[in-house]
């Protein structure tokens, strides 16, 4: 491998990926390039195709079409080499192993020394319960155990699939502090979630997924911009999106029949323009938050 290609190697390279289960298309043409060091949230409702995408990145599923590469390798090889590891949503633990034995088994499989075991246990905050049987651990502790196992190969890319599902608030907080401490070391992290606040708080980049497609992709700041601002709704027969493009303060204009939706940060300016310069009536101003942006981007079309 030459230096140039090493520098250009993407952490994740998905290109035109399609995955079908019978008549259902779970992933419908996803193209996504993630650079090393990025912390990316895959955000979307249940059934959007997040888990299938994650499974394909880990080589647990094969795409029907398209190409999946992780650090320039086929996913299965990337997993075997320890370039990528994951904390999966559920399952995957044996109740009659202790926490320490589970991590040790993982270390043995990856050919890591005994010292790596204690280190992973410490970093996942499990030192107090190392000798406990997995079956006697709380959901949060089990999830941190999966995290400890994922840390063992010292992966370049860490994938978290709905990592805090079923955790209480305290468990969720502890889990994310462990992840955040770890991400400071420059690891690439991809996490799938349907919790908006998690995407907002922990990701540099947010990729919205809906019905197996990427519907939005931007930095955290762009997502916040998308989420902030207000929407001015008005009745304006005969309006077109082009005629309203010059409304001062408008970021985005949408026309649905006789109703126009003008999105922007300065709703006063937009309202003033609509009332004074056009025939608009029935004005309604609503504020948007991340939840609205999320719903707008991920909800099914009404018709």
């Amino acid at each position: 491998m030459t230096l140039t290609t090493a520098l250009e190697t993407a952490a994740v390279d998905l290109s035109g990926v399609v995955k079908r289960y019978g008549a259902v298309t779970a992933v419908d043409g996803i193209t996504l390039n993630i650079r090393p060091g990025e912390v990316v949230a895959l955000l979307g409702p249940n059934g959007a195709g997040k888990t299938t995408t994650v499974d394909m990145l880990l080589g647990l599923q094969k795409p029907d079409e398209g190409r999946v590469e992780v650090y320039g390798q086929a996913p299965h090889d990337a997993v075997a080499l320890g370039l990528v590891s994951a904390v999966m949503q559920t399952g995957g633990l044996l109740k009659d192993y202790t926490v320490e034995e589970t991590v040790r088994l993982t270390a043995v499989l990856f050919g890591k020394p005994r010292s790596a075991v204690g280190e992973a246990i410490d970093r996942a905050g499990l030192a107090d319960v190392a000798g406990r049987l997995v079956g006697k651990c709380s959901g949060g502790q089990q999830q941190r155990l999966r995290f400890a196992m994922a840390l063992l190969p010292d992966p370049e890319l860490l994938i978290l699939d709905e990592p805090t599902t079923g955790m209480d608030v305290a468990g969720r907080h502890e889990f994310w502090s462990a992840i955040r401490d770890d991400a400071r070391r420059g690891r690439t992290v991809i996490f799938a979630t349907h919790y908006l606040e998690e995407a907002d708080a922990y990701a540099d980049r947010v990729v919205f997924v809906r019905r197996g497609r990427i519907v939005a992709d931007g930095t955290s700041a762009e997502v916040k911009a998308l989420a902030s601002g207000r929407t001015v709704r008005a009745t304006l027969p005969g309006a077109s999106e082009t005629s309203l493009r010059d409304v001062p303060g408008a970021d985005r204009v949408e026309v649905r029949g006789d109703t126009v939706f003008v999105h922007g940060n300065d709703s006063d300016e937009i309202a003033r323009y609509l009332l004074t310069r056009t025939a608009a009536r029935d004005l309604e101003i609503t504020s948007r938050n991340l939840e609205d942006a999320f719903l707008a981007l991920t909800a099914d079309e009404e018709n």
């Binding site: 997993v79 993982t106 050919g111």
Partner: peptide, 16 residues
């Protein structure tokens, strides 16, 4: 038992 617990799936995330 290990398949039922999802452990085989976890092992597929290792070089085994």
């Amino acid at each position: 038992v290990e398949r039922a617990a999802g452990w085989s799936r976890q092992l597929r995330l290792t070089p085994l």
